[in-house]
Simulated scan of single mutants.
Amino acid sequence: MDKSAAGQTPIILGVDDLRSLPRATRVARTSREGVLLLEEHRDREIDELWLDHDLGGDDTIMPVVALLEEAAFDGRPFTIGMIFVHSANPSGAETLLRVLRRWDYRVRRAIA
């Protein structure tokens, strides 16, 4: 059932150091903040998760991806309707798509 039709606000999370992501209900700017944001939503359905690969300086999205991988490995994957990868880093984006698909997350490349 569509959450907006039921009067519920969809949960749209983003991890990106620069973009505003206007549709997102919450945005984390670092991988550490991204991990905390996902942990905060651990037992809730996340409608959309927007991920950028490069998060400024030496920071990347990989700690967030490791959390998603670990959850799937433990048999308790996060419940996420769709993960959108919107990185300007082509090889980083392809790595995210490959890793997340391996764990059966629904993921696709997007422009934010």
Rank of each mutant, 00 (worst) to 15 (best):
M1I: 07
D2R: 05
K3V: 11
K3L: 15
S4G: 01
S4Y: 02
A5Y: 06
A6I: 00
A6N: 04
Q8G: 00
T9S: 08
I11V: 14
I11Q: 05
I11E: 07
I11K: 11
I12E: 10
G14H: 08
L18R: 12
S20L: 12
S20C: 08
S20E: 14
L21S: 07
P22Y: 00
P22R: 03
A24G: 06
T25A: 00
R26Q: 14
A28W: 00
R29P: 13
R29N: 13
T30L: 09
T30P: 09
T30M: 06
S31T: 13
R32P: 00
R32Q: 15
E33Q: 15
E33G: 05
G34K: 07
V35K: 05
L36G: 11
L38A: 03
E40F: 04
H41C: 05
R42V: 01
R44K: 08
R44G: 01
R44A: 12
E45K: 04
I46N: 03
D47S: 13
E48T: 02
L49R: 03
L49G: 04
L49M: 03
W50L: 15
W50Y: 15
L51G: 12
L55K: 10
G57I: 09
D59T: 11
D59Y: 11
T60F: 04
T60K: 08
I61Q: 08
I61W: 05
P63Q: 07
V64E: 04
V65K: 02
L67D: 02
L68M: 08
E70N: 10
E70T: 14
E70Y: 02
A72T: 02
F73R: 12
F73K: 09
D74Q: 13
D74K: 13
R76S: 01
P77L: 04
T79Y: 00
I80T: 03
G81H: 07
G81K: 05
I83M: 05
I83N: 07
I83A: 04
I83L: 07
F84H: 15
V85A: 15
V85G: 11
S87A: 13
A88Q: 11
A88V: 12
P90N: 04
S91L: 13
S91A: 15
S91K: 10
S91Q: 11
G92T: 13
L97I: 15
V99S: 01
L100Y: 01
L100G: 03
L100A: 02
L100N: 01
Y105M: 06
V107E: 06
V107I: 10
R109Q: 13
I111L: 13
A112Y: 03
